[in-house]
């Protein structure tokens, strides 16, 4: 082809620039995952709560309003356990410390481990839901047929937006043996 020398140079330059842009987008894609995590941690966007015990909020208790906290449980796949919320709805004042009880039952006759993963809706409420003590911070082990009661100690931050009157905390049970075998929990 009678492409001139200068256009050959130009093609090389363009290809180099586009390949750099491409690599930039690859890096950007990889960065999107941690960025999403940080973004969600700051905004509570995905309804996730803290993964370790939090300190109490020192803000004054707001006696002028009530927040209904609904506790729901779901069994994930493949774990022969039952998780029940013994207190299904608790009405609290923002700032008040409250406790809810959950019962874990292993319905099979073999020892196994599981973990309850929490999610709060509406998601804007997630970062205002503070947990001082929770079974969800670590995995549980249950002998076959064993049943235990575990508490959740929590506080709804008085900074919770006024338009949120109900918070739903959903726990989903997942088998931990599989997760551990596959590489562990991503904190």
């Amino acid at each position: 082809m009678s492409k001139s020398q200068s256009s050959d140079e130009g093609v090389k330059r363009t290809v180099r620039t586009t390949v750099w842009a491409l690599l930039g987008m690859v890096l950007f894609t990889i960065a999107l995952v941690p960025l999403y995590d940080v973004f969600c941690e700051v905004t509570g966007l995905n309804g996730k709560t803290a993964t370790s015990a939090q300190v109490m909020s020192a803000q004054e208790r707001d006696d002028t309003r009530w927040v209904r906290v609904q506790l729901v449980t779901r069994s994930g796949t493949g774990l022969p356990w039952r998780l029940e919320a013994l207190d299904q709805v608790i009405a609290v004042h923002p700032g008040e410390i409250a406790q809810a009880r959950f019962r874990f039952t292993n319905t099979s006759d073999v020892r196994s481990s599981g973990r309850a993963v929490p999610s709060v809706s509406p998601s804007q409420g997630a970062r205002h839901f503070r947990k001082m003590e929770c079974f969800c911070f670590q995995e549980q082990w249950l002998e076959g047929g064993e049943s235990i009661e575990l508490p959740l100690v929590f506080q709804v931050d008085p900074a919770l937006p006024a338009d949120i009157q109900t918070l739903t905390l959903a726990y989903t049970l997942y088998p931990m043996s599989e997760v551990v075998a596959q590489g562990g929990y991503r904190e």
Binding site: V33, Y174, E178, A181, Q182, G183, G184
Partner: peptide
Amino acid sequence: GTSFFDAAGG
């Protein structure tokens, strides 16, 4: 065994 999209693994 990663958990990018798996809630069970965080």
